[in-house]
Design a binder for these strands. Structure first.
Lengths: 346, 346
DNA sequence: CTGTTAGCGCTTTCAC
DNA sequence: GTGAAAGCGCTAACAG
């Protein structure tokens, strides 16, 4: 019955059930063109033999692997974990498996991973990371395997993507702070070379300032790597440079929480002395005191929609738009003083 | 050159290079028995044609996929993310790819996923989740594919695993609290049916009490699901039941942080009024005020060691022990008053 | 409804 | 060093 090796194949089942391989294949694949009696007999033999279809052989013969590759910077970052969760759920729903690969945002490694995934004959590819380069684009364009970018974009609009408008998100966040009456608003950003949470959010911050005729001051800017500790350090520097700073917008929640703690450790209170806005709305935003006001980016949805879009491409379904921009939301909690805000309300 | 479809195969390369498929296969696989000149010629053609080996065909022919399956409860839980990170890193190091599957801790789904992974002909399987049942065991025993459990164990010691001693971890955590002089120490646990972070940590808590002749009191026990919110709720109940409670041990850091906030929202101070101990030492433990004292469980290492162990099995290497117990550490920060602790030091 | 027969693209003896 | 040929286990026409 169960054998430690020498796997039993579709051929064994066929022989044992007294039918052809084709019939067994039909039964296994739920093809309706099988007489119920035959089906039952085959099913019994399968059960009895403990037959398990070989997906690799199937993949070779059918040219489909029901597997999608996902390239992701770092799974231990809650931002990506949330995205992945959305991807996973939809993938499961559509019966796809996922090969997950960490790129650490290293361009060379990204390219290698994409190669490997393509070698593995994935039916589709989801790419999360920074904006894609010419090299990515040339691989993506050369392969028949559909690709969707999640929480990333393609400047040339050649590759489909799902994202939010990061400039607008940052602009809104900053505007909230401005509407509280702050004049000197700090910004804790991510390297401007990062074209997702980096540059666009910097730009949004700047735009908000401009729109409200506030001067842009380099000394109010600090750059971190998106994680907690860097936010803490950045805020410390800001506080040292200008102890009178009364508001700060951090490009990520983790950095915002770091900033909150830096402010508190500095002997100041949030939001009484300093207001703090984050961005993304990952779990930690509501696991801190005071609760972090932040821009709610639909991470889960970005992942889910990207995966859904990919399934459409994989099935050659009609697709309206290749570029999907999801709406973000404002989550005003306790690290800012304002509790309501409308575009152009002040 | 690059064609949108009609993939070029090893045969095309062979023809173009004027050699046999076998030779192409040899150079692709780094087999030394190829004349340098031939090798170069083949390599050139590969380059020129943009040939990409088909891993599925290779897998079928060689019966190896260089892929391992990982069954994990929920990637968005930092506990698992950290484990996965360790797995990923070692897998990359040994050139394995990873198929990640979320089980949500649902037994039926777990079993299905294992089936699917086995169908995909993974070379090895990593299982993270709750303790395994007879059903898991029978599948694992029947397959020639090596399996390693990470942060889980097998009561029957039939399946290899990598874990820490959770009873001891909880006992130590509780002992720290006891040594601070607390008499009524609360416990926020996970469902006792969870045989990893649930029952063993409950047991450890109880054992510490016994060892120090402290009475065990049901009213000091609350059960959560391991996540932040449940820890918050649990602590609130504890505070309501016994406002004089002066210490609490939570089975997970997230719950511990929830507890801290519940205590603070209740108008009490940590650790002046109530000491809080967590367990696991996930990032949030050092992203909260006061910094959480906790048991440092080497999550990354558990994943890494489990993966390393699996590679040994996959290569039929000699393995000393099938069961690996890693050491935990005490991370005494600011949510407890004690700053040093030694076994039997009081 | 069922069976026959080609492959899918590659690895792997076994010869030469 | 290199090539010929036999599969790996399954699907997918095509017949019947």
């Amino acid at each position: 019955m169960e054998n430690k090796k020498g796997n039993i194949t579709i051929y064994d089942v066929a022989r044992e059930a007294g039918v052809s391989m084709a019939t067994v294949s039909r039964v296994v694949n739920g093809n309706p063109n099988v007489k119920p009696a035959t089906r039952k007999k085959v099913l019994d033999v399968i059960q009895q033999l403990g037959y398990r279809p070989n997906a690799v052989a199937r993949g070779l013969a059918s040219k489909k692997t029901t597997t999608v590759g996902v390239v992701i910077p770092d799974i231990s970052n809650p931002f990506n974990a949330e995205l992945t969760r959305g991807i996973e759920d939809i993938a499961t729903m559509y019966h796809y498996n996922i090969i997950l690969c960490n790129s650490d945002l290293k361009p060379l490694r990204e390219l290698q991973l994409i190669e490997t995934l393509l070698e593995k004959q994935v039916d589709g590819l989801l790419f999360l990371g920074s904006a894609i380069t010419e090299e990515h684009r040339s691989i993506f364009n050369a392969t028949p395997v559909p690709v969707v970018l999640a929480a990333t974009h393609d400047e040339k609009n050649e590759i489909p993507y799902v994202n939010v408008d990061n400039i607008e998100a940052a602009k809104t966040a900053t505007s909230v702070l401005i509407s509280e009456g702050h004049k000197r608003i700090g910004f804790i950003g991510i390297q401007l070379t990062n074209s997702i949470q980096g540059y666009p959010r910097y730009l949004g911050y700047k735009k908000a300032l401009e729109q409200h005729q506030l001067p842009f001051d380099e000394t109010l800017i600090e750059i971190g790597n998106g994680r907690y500790q860097s936010g803490y350090e950045a805020m410390k520097k800001l506080l040292e440079k200008d102890p009178s700073i009364s508001a700060v917008f951090a490009a990520t929640d983790e950095m915002a929480v770091g900033a909150i703690h830096a402010i508190q450790d500095f002997g100041r209170s949030v939001p009484d002395d300093v207001s703090v806005m984050g961005c993304n709305n990952i779990p930690i935003a509501s696991q801190v005191r005071p609760l972090l006001s932040t821009v709610s980016v639909p991470l889960y949805d970005i992942g889910a929609v990207a995966m859904r879009l990919l399934t459409k491409y994989m099935n050659n379904e009609e697709v309206e738009t290749d570029q999907v921009i999801l709406q973000f939301d404002l989550e005003l909690r306790d690290s800012t003083r304002i509790k309501e805000w409308h575009e152009g309300a002040f």
